[in-house]
């Protein structure tokens, strides 16, 4: 299943944007094995967005599950670095 971020929010700047995406990603992860989140047309993300969209997934899944089942595509350097960095740091605090 593919979640296209641009279909859900116009940008990825705020907590609210993150919550909207989180709702769809969480639902997809509960419904299918492999989920792709597509960032086409998204120039950047903030930590507020990443905390709400992805870090919050750690309440339902462990990081190993997320890494194996959640795939990101069409990400630029900034998006990739921030998502990876935030998830690794928050997963370490949960562990």
């Amino acid at each position: 299943m593919v979640v296209v971020v641009k279909d859900l929010v116009s940008s990825c700047d705020t907590n609210y944007d993150g919550m909207v995406v989180h709702k769809h990603v969480l639902s997809a992860l509960h419904g299918t094995d492999s989920v792709v989140v597509d960032f086409s047309g998204i120039p950047n993300v903030t930590s507020s967005f990443v905390n709400c969209a992805f870090v919050a997934l750690l309440q339902d899944f462990d990081f190993a599950q997320i890494r194996s089942r959640l795939h990101l595509q069409n990400v630029n350097r900034q998006i990739g670095n921030l998502v990876r960095d935030r998830m690794k740091k928050e997963a370490a605090t949960v562990a």
Binding site: D13, P43, N44, T46, I79, L82
Partner: peptide
């Protein structure tokens, strides 16, 4: 300018 853009939003 993605990093700068995020800095401003942060």
């Amino acid at each position: 300018l993605a990093e700068f853009r995020t800095c401003m939003s942060e």
